Computed example of a mutant assay.
Amino acid sequence: MQVFVYLMSLLGLCSALPHDSTYPGTDGRSFVNFNISPPRKFTNQALSKAEACRDPSGFTGYCVASAACRAFNGTQGARCPKRPAGTGTCCLVDRCPVAPPTVPSGGAVITAPIPDSGSAVGTEVQFICQPGLVFEGIPEVMVTATCDVRGTWSPAVIPNCVPAPPTVCVSEPPSAPADVLVSDGGDRFIGALVYYVCTSGTFADGRAITAARCGEDGLWSPETLPECVTAPPTECASPPPEAPAGVLQHFDGNLTIGALSLYTCAATGMVFPSGASFLLATCHEDGTWQPDDVPSCAQPVATLSHGY
């Protein structure tokens, strides 16, 4: 008789029972005011009978006392109606009304056969990624979805599978020209560094030392080194040219870029081949003197008048 009444109540055929009642905070679940023994896994001597709840899909759960809810992690389910002390405070469903999460892109399921909707609480489905792929955003190599006492699959969505990131460099660090010193420890793991020192000046970016790093993609950055530029001189490479006989040199010993050395003819009336009585040598930006040689002085060439 009790079984018959219970079935009628579940089918909505017993109008005297509040099977249409929806209580606040129950996520649409309704409750059947009928005592029924909970399933074996929830058996508790103090709760040999418990009020039944039914969610919109038609699956039946059990209203159990708060102590049992905590013990079986059911406190997240729909709450049962408030009753006198000792009666239920939460609804533990016995099945998941929806199918488990779908197999993600690039993934596979190792549970066979794949369960459908209506799986019992505690059913597990295990997912893995195909070779060479990993779950996106998580380190786990296998994800297990479980039908829990809330009647839902947890997790509800399985991350997609993406290519596994490299753990070692897939290329070699940039090569260095002869005027660059390389400090390479030989590491070829992600994050490895190789240092380069420009021995003849600075790199084109103005730094004397630069580094290449093996990135998360396994490639070295930069792929090529900036040019090593010879540092411009700050002083003349040598003293100014010497004065030949008959030429006086006026030089204060300054060897910085832009320094001057003055040359004059010692004898009155004598001139340089250019016709000038003096000559200047300048220390140029490359550190060389121009002119780099001083000619001798001579008599000026006579200028003949017209017709004579």
Rank of each mutant, 00 (worst) to 15 (best):
S21G: 12
S21V: 13
Y23V: 08
Y23A: 04
Y23E: 11
Y23K: 04
Y23T: 06
P24A: 00
D27W: 09
G28Q: 05
R29M: 13
F31I: 00
V32N: 12
N33H: 14
F34L: 10
N35A: 15
I36A: 14
P38M: 00
P38H: 01
P38E: 01
P38Q: 01
P39E: 10
R40C: 05
R40Y: 07
R40T: 13
R40I: 11
R40D: 14
F42M: 13
N44V: 05
N44T: 05
Q45T: 15
A46G: 06
A46S: 15
L47K: 04
S48H: 09
K49M: 11
A50R: 07
A50P: 06
E51A: 15
E51V: 06
C53D: 06
R54Y: 05
R54L: 09
P56A: 15
P56N: 11
S57I: 08
S57C: 12
S57G: 15
G58F: 07
G58K: 00
G58H: 03
F59L: 07
T60E: 15
G61Q: 00
Y62E: 07
C63N: 08
V64R: 00
V64A: 08
A65H: 13
A67M: 11
A68M: 08
C69N: 07
C69I: 03
R70D: 13
N73V: 00
G74Y: 00
T75W: 04
Q76H: 10
G77K: 01
R79K: 14
K82V: 14
K82A: 12
K82Y: 13
R83T: 12
G88F: 12
G88T: 02
G88Y: 08
C90R: 05
C91E: 04
L92F: 07
C96F: 01
P97H: 07
V98N: 07
V98G: 03
A99L: 02
A99M: 12
P100N: 08
P101D: 05
P101T: 05
P104N: 02
P104K: 05
V109N: 00
V109T: 03
I110D: 13
T111F: 00
T111P: 06
P113Q: 06
P115M: 02
G118Q: 00
G118Y: 03
S119N: 01
A120H: 10
A120P: 04
V121G: 01
T123D: 05
E124L: 10
V125C: 02
C129E: 09
Q130R: 08
P131C: 07
P131R: 06
G132P: 03
G132N: 11
L133K: 10
L133C: 04
L133Y: 04
F135A: 02
F135L: 08
F135H: 01
E136P: 09
G137R: 09
G137H: 08
G137V: 12
G137Y: 11
G137S: 13
I138L: 06
P139T: 15
P139R: 10
P139K: 08
E140A: 15
E140V: 12
E140H: 14
V141A: 15
M142R: 08
M142A: 11
M142S: 09
M142F: 04
M142Y: 04
V143S: 03
A145C: 03
A145L: 01
C147E: 02
C147V: 06
